[in-house]
Structure formats: structure tokens, C-alpha cells
Simulated scan of single mutants.
Amino acid sequence: MRWLLLSLLPTALLANEDIADQYPGSVLYQHPVEVIPGVFSAIGATAPPTYENSGHNNNLSFIVTGEGVVVVNSGASYQLAEALHSEIKEVTDQPVVAVFTENGQGHAMLGNSYWVGQGVPVIAHSEAAHEFQEYGAQTQQAHLRTIKEKADGTELVQPTEIFDDEYVMELGEFRIEARYLGPAHSPGDIVVWLPNQSLVISGDMAFHERMLPIFEHTMTADWLETWDTEFEALNATYVIPGHGHPTNMAQVRRYTKGYLEYLREKIGAHIDEGGDLAGAYYVDQSPYTNLDTFEELATKNAGRVFEQMEWE
């Protein structure tokens, strides 16, 4: 099978948030690709969730171990989870034995109802499970308004297992380490690290083709510390990010760590000059205009970093 050799190359030109759907006939945005032997990912749109992309705007990955399949992310609906399972069955007759969710957001957990209905354990960090319990209903309603009948069958179902630091599975030639590295993009963010293959499914720890969003609870200084002390230490050869095509550490370092440092430097200078929140929205972010979702997120990100940094 042809592998996605582009995973070692800068891929900023491969994403385009204006392409509504790349897999007609399926609710998945794209057909799964084999990134390295045994590791597949159905790459979502680098755009906000829409009816056209069926809410599939994150990466849904799976690992064919020889002793069962491990899925990363339940998906944003029952139908997305079911569609991914259908693709898995085209690749292998091995059963799905576990699903990890990268965080507590809807696109990671709203498909839980499908997988739990199949008798598959759904595993999440304790903070992610709490986040989904608190905000899952709100997220489900937002998805229902967006994807309409494509949300049919979706019910709020909590993860069946939780952990705090690390959850390890040994299957075939794969050692699968689900790790909480520390505070990052959202509560309970985890990465799935495959040390034998030097591949990390980074979730929202790392972005590159689309601009990262900074939420009210996203502490950018903490994210940078987690990046420097834990994520870089993995020294991964391959990175499957939460959004966008598989790539390498240099790319996600440039557009995640680099962007956070750049924006904090600009906002810091703005504060030092006596600038206010209204002015913070207009700090120069032009080096990142090539990223998808720049128009939706850049000014929001600047405002939230200002609100954090004025109290640091």
C-alpha cells in the first residue's frame, strides 16, 4: 500500500478551508490514508464545522496492530464514528479494541455513543471527561444546528475509562502510550505516542495548516512550558496533528510554538507601550495569514492573550 510519504514534508499548501468536501458519498471529509505502516488517519477539514463537511474538521486516526485496532477520537457524531468503522473494516477484519479521545471537545467525543454501543471501551483523561460532562450538551446542540440530520443517532455518552497521567497498551509491534503532558490547548489534552514507530498523534497540542484557537481556558504560557519540557522531548519523526495533514516536528513547532511566542511578544510590547484591549485586536499577525481560519481566529486570539498577559 502506498504510504503518505508527504508526512516528512512541509504541507502548508495542501490544506484549503474552501474545499467543502473531499469524499463524496461519505460523511467523512477525506478517505483515510496510511501515514506509516499500520497507522491511518481520516483527515478533517481545516475549517470550522459546516453542514458540507459534516462536522468532520479534525483528524480521526486508527492503528492496526495485528492484535486489534485502536482508534483515536470518537468523531463529532454517531454517523462519523460509524463511517470511520466502515473504513476500518475495509482495511482489516481485526476488531476495534479501544478508542482514545484527544480532549473533551465535541469532535473528539460526540461519537462515543456509537463506539460504546459496539462494546468498545472509550478512554479519556479525567479533565477531558469532566469538560465533556459540563459542556457536552451545549456542544451537541451546536452541532445539531450545523449538521442537522447528519447528527441523527448522536447521544451524550461519557467515556467508559479515565486516567490522569498515562494509559499504556501493548499490542503486536505497537506500544501505545496515551499521555497527558501538561496544560496545553484545552483541559485534558492528550497525545498518543508510538515510541517504536517514532510517531505522535498529537491532538490539539500541535497545529500547522490552520490557525490554533486560544480559548478562555487556554493558558498560553503553560502551553509553551508543556511544549518545551514534554512535547519536544518525544523527538517524534512523524506528527499527526489534531487538524491538518500529517507532518513533522519542524512544521508544528513553527506554527504552534512559534505562533504562541510571536503573539505573546507582540501583545507584551503592546502592553509595555500602554496599549489597551481594543488596540490588542490589531497587533500585527501578518506572518500567519496563510493559515486556514486566520480570519475567524486571529483577533480573538490576540484579545485573549492580552487578557492573560496583563495579569502575568
Results as ranks from 00 to 15, higher is better:
Arg2Gln: 14
Trp3Cys: 12
Leu6Glu: 15
Leu9Pro: 04
Ala12Gln: 11
Leu13Asn: 07
Ala15Lys: 10
Asn16Thr: 15
Glu17Arg: 07
Ile19Arg: 08
Ala20Met: 08
Ala20Asn: 10
Gln22Ala: 12
His31Met: 05
Phe40Val: 03
Ser41Asn: 12
Ala45Thr: 03
Thr50Val: 04
Tyr51Trp: 13
Ser54Leu: 02
Gly55Pro: 06
Gly55Ser: 09
Thr65Asp: 04
Glu67Ser: 11
Asn73Met: 06
Ala76Trp: 03
His85Pro: 07
His85Cys: 11
His85Lys: 13
Glu87Thr: 02
Thr92Cys: 07
Asp93Arg: 09
Ala98Cys: 11
Phe100Ala: 00
Phe100Asn: 00
Thr101Gly: 06
Gly104Leu: 06
Gly106Pro: 04
Leu110Phe: 05
Asn112Val: 01
Asn112Tyr: 00
Pro121Ile: 01
Ile123Phe: 03
Ile123Met: 01
Ala124Arg: 02
Glu127His: 15
Glu127Ile: 14
Ala128Pro: 06
Ala128Gly: 10
His130Ala: 15
Gly136His: 08
Glu155Pro: 08
Val157Asn: 04
Ile162Phe: 03
Phe163Tyr: 14
Glu166His: 15
Gly172Trp: 01
Leu181Glu: 08
Pro183Tyr: 10
Ala184Trp: 00
His185Ser: 08
Gly188Phe: 04
Val192Asn: 00
Leu194Val: 01
Pro195Gly: 14
Ile201Ser: 00
Ile201Gly: 00
Ser202Ala: 14
Leu212Ser: 09
Glu216Tyr: 12
Thr218Met: 05
Thr218Arg: 00
Asp222Arg: 12
Leu224His: 11
Trp227Gln: 02
Glu230Val: 07
Ala233Glu: 14
Asn235Thr: 09
Ile240Asn: 05
Ile240Gly: 04
His245Phe: 15
Thr247Tyr: 04
Gln251Cys: 10
Gln251Val: 12
Arg253Ile: 11
Lys257Gly: 05
Gly258Ala: 11
Arg264Asn: 09
His270Ile: 01
Gly275Val: 02
Asp276Val: 06
Tyr281Glu: 06
Tyr282Ser: 15
Thr293Phe: 09
Glu295Ala: 09
Glu296Phe: 03
Thr299Gly: 12
Glu310Thr: 14
Glu310Phe: 07
Trp311Ser: 10
